[in-house]
């Protein structure tokens, strides 16, 4: 009994217990499930530079009042000093009890800015003059008012496709006077999907190669002329509209309304040759987007799975997610 009590009192144990009780002592990196609640043990507070300047001025005022033996000025100085010192509690209370209930995110293409909707709640009190910051990321000022239910929009830069772990969020406030900075870290266990970035230009997908009708059809005979567009590398030379191109600086190609316009596309990973993995993904992504934009059905064949043929936003999302999560 006494042995175990003694053992539990070793410095290492004590430190461990202290850290368990006060996780703020260590910058806790492991993420935590939502909701994240800021309790008093994880709020740091320090005076700001402005706070230090203010303290210096207060000291000058104090010495001046004492030197001139002026009690009214002294009373004013102590009142101002006490008020500004009390503002420390204001900063602390502004953070304490703040909850991050949920994070909402619309998937974006890699390279675009991901807009997170942070649902924060202030347990009935208005919390004004807060800011959220992360690395990487921007600084966003916000307030949590009891009557308002809008999410706080916070944008993150994205670089790679796939799951983006929400970084540790630094929630900070200098309310009410800017003399003290209270801050805390939130490590929400949440992630957002980043779609692959579509290739900008490239050839259209091959039409579905029917097993029965394998030979490529001569295009010009059956298809109707639908317009002109700029030449992209990879366009077949016979589609170039030479007459029209002669008048322009850029060559243009004829757009054709194919007879099989509403035929589903088969977008096959294996059918793309001569590109590395990322470029393949980007090309498939562009095709998926184009197929969705033209309102046709498509089928996506990836090394491990096949999606579709289908159409609509759910199919689009499923395809883009599958592409995003390719190894």
């Amino acid at each position: 009994m006494s042995g175990s009590a003694l053992r539990s009192l070793t410095p290492a144990n004590g430190l461990r217990r202290l850290l368990k009780r006060h996780p703020a002592l260590l910058r806790r990196r492991q993420s935590e499930p939502l909701p994240v609640i800021l309790d008093r043990r994880r709020i740091y507070i320090l005076p700001t530079g402005f706070g230090l300047v203010f303290a210096a001025i207060l000291l000058v005022m104090l010495i001046g009042a004492l030197n001139y033996n002026n009690n009214a000025a002294l009373l004013l100085t102590t009142l101002l000093g006490a008020t500004t010192a009390q503002s420390m509690y204001g900063a602390f209370r502004n953070l304490k009890g703040l909850r991050l209930l949920s994070i909402r995110a619309q998937p974006v293409e890699a390279g675009q800015r991901l807009v997170l909707g942070l649902h924060l709640q202030g347990s009935g009190r208005a919390r004004i003059g807060l800011s959220v910051r992360s690395s990487p990321g921007t600084t966003q000022n916000f307030s949590v008012l009891p009557e308002a239910h809008d999410d706080i929009e916070y944008t993150l830069p994205t670089e790679r496709r796939g799951w983006l772990d929400i970084p540790s969020l630094n929630i900070e406030t200098r309310w009410p006077f800017g003399l003290f900075r209270a801050w805390s870290w939130m490590h929400p266990a949440a992630r957002a999907l980043v779609y692959p970035c579509a290739e900008r230009t490239g050839p259209d997908p091959d039409p579905i190669a029917d097993e029965a009708n394998n030979a490529p059809k001569p295009l010009d005979e059956d298809d109707d002329f639908a317009g002109l567009r700029d030449y992209r590398p990879g366009d077949p030379p016979r589609r170039i509209a030479w007459k029209s191109s002669a008048k322009r600086e850029q060559p243009v190609v004829r757009l054709l309304l194919s007879r099989d316009e509403q035929q589903p596309w088969r977008l096959d990973w294996q059918a793309i040759h001569g590109l590395d993995t990322e470029m393949r993904i980007r090309r498939l992504t562009r095709w998926v987007r184009e197929a969705d934009a033209t309102g046709r059905q498509w089928e996506l064949r990836l090394p491990e799975q096949t999606l579709g043929p289908d159409q609509g936003p759910a199919h689009l999302h499923a395809c883009l997610q599958a592409l995003a999560l390719l190894p």
Binding site: L66, N69, N71, T78, L79, G81, A82, T83, Q86
Partner: peptide
């Protein structure tokens, strides 16, 4: 905040040593 700090200010006023 000013009202809340009145007791604090008075205390400091009484205790701060005069030159």
């Amino acid at each position: 905040l000013i009202l809340a700090s009145v007791p604090f200010a008075l205390l400091a006023f009484v205790l701060i040593p005069r030159l």
